[in-house]
Design a protein around this nucleic acid. Structure first.
Lengths: 222, 222
DNA sequence: AAACATCCTGACCACATGGTCAGCTCAGAA
DNA sequence: TTCTGAGCTGACCATGTGGTCAGGATGTTT
């Protein structure tokens, strides 16, 4: 029977059952790699640095991940999966205020919950998105176009100003992403050590207020 | 006297007077380096690649620039100088709409005129701003604080909503920067090859409209 | 022509890179 | 006791890195 040791973190040093070791090490490596890749980009990151960050020998990283490229792609895919996870479908019947605020909130949370992943993504895009072209021109484009259509219908119904929906999506995108990607700048200028939950809540509120008002959406239940 | 040869681009191939050769080569190298650093970050960029991009042997790049680090710092300083060049002082007596629109316009132009520089800056910040800490916590902070004070006075006078001025500055910042830094994403999603002047004008108009309205600023001459 | 400073670069160096691999450890099954 | 297989890793390799340098090319001044 073997009563299946609990695979929790913080238990013994050795001898987990099954592939628990693998699972834990992979998690550790992925986390370390996300940090390093986020900070230095694909080329700038070295397996040595990633291994050091994960507290493992370089060979071990390659043993689990196969190659630098494979590791990087895996991280990107994980980030895209997180992104997809927070996408609920919307319909013309929904309340624009609800939808926009929900969009801002969830995007803000994603950036906050995974700042390294967010920076990793940003670095990839800034570098010309060599690995993500297919994604941008595929899934992501479809997603944006679908939203844009609905926004336009709202405009036609007088529920919001006739603004270009795609630019609106980019506006929300950039504003929310900024606080993760440019954290160093935000902290430096505001002279803080970290952004607290309160700060984030305040920013979210600010963005919601300004953007909703800015495109003429009544602030809840139209 | 020496009638000072015009230092325009496109003149002869050889034998410029004075340090004209030096000037031209340095310009070439800086342009190439900006592109490479922007695409791969500090560590990810190689002198080899920069030299190739500039059409010179690697030794020549080092002959002019001394070191990779020096070259990088010089690029950052050039970008900061460009940034400073477009900063006009403002006063409480100015029209909020004028100031905000001017801010959006000039920031947008900067990003558009120097997209590689903008991306270079972005990559530096994403990586934790190792070279720019002093600048963020110095000049840039002062600049933001000064503006923030004036925005607050405008709010007190009822010329705009009582929004947090620092978040407002970051909002404008991120939105305008986005179209340079995330160009790959914007192009991929909108299925364009480039952003035309018309596109940029439309975006600028959109941002001005939404942001001014969003924080309750009357759209010209309050 | 001789002197001079600037411009230029191939060869080289010590070191870091991504990746391979033979062979180790060690728990559990046969 | 032997075998198996997952986990692991130090040594190694070809290639690329930033940087140095001796020495040549080139043009200007005397």
């Amino acid at each position: 029977m073997t009563p299946r040791k609990t695979p929790f973190a913080g238990d013994g040093e050795k001898s987990e059952a099954n592939g628990a070791i693998r699972e834990r090490n992979e998690r550790e490596i992925l986390a370390a790699a996300e940090r390093i890749f986020a900070g230095h980009g694909y080329r700038g990151a070295s397996l040595q640095a990633i291994a050091h960050e994960a507290g493992l020998p370089k060979s071990n990283v390659l043993y689990y991940m196969g190659s630098k490229r494979g590791l990087y792609v895996r991280l990107l895919e994980r980030m895209m999966a997180r992104w997809n996870a927070l996408l609920d479908d919307i319909s013309v019947e929904d309340d624009p205020a609800d939808v926009l605020e929900g969009f801002i909130r969830s995007k803000m949370q994603l950036s906050r919950r995974h700042p390294e992943g967010s920076r990793l993504f940003a670095a990839e895009i800034i570098g010309g998105a060599p690995f993500l072209q297919y994604y941008l021109r595929g899934e992501m484009r479809d997603w944006v176009q679908a939203r844009a259509l609905i926004f336009e219908q709202w405009s036609a119904r007088g529920l919001m100003d006739p603004v270009d929906p795609v630019w609106l999506i980019f506006l929300i995108w950039s504003a929310t992403q900024h606080y993760a990607d440019f954290e160093a700048q935000v902290l430096g200028i505001t002279d803080k050590d970290t952004l607290t939950d309160n700060d984030v809540e305040a920013i979210t509120g600010f963005l919601t207020q300004v953007i909703l008002k800015g495109c003429g959406v009544a602030p809840r239940q139209a």
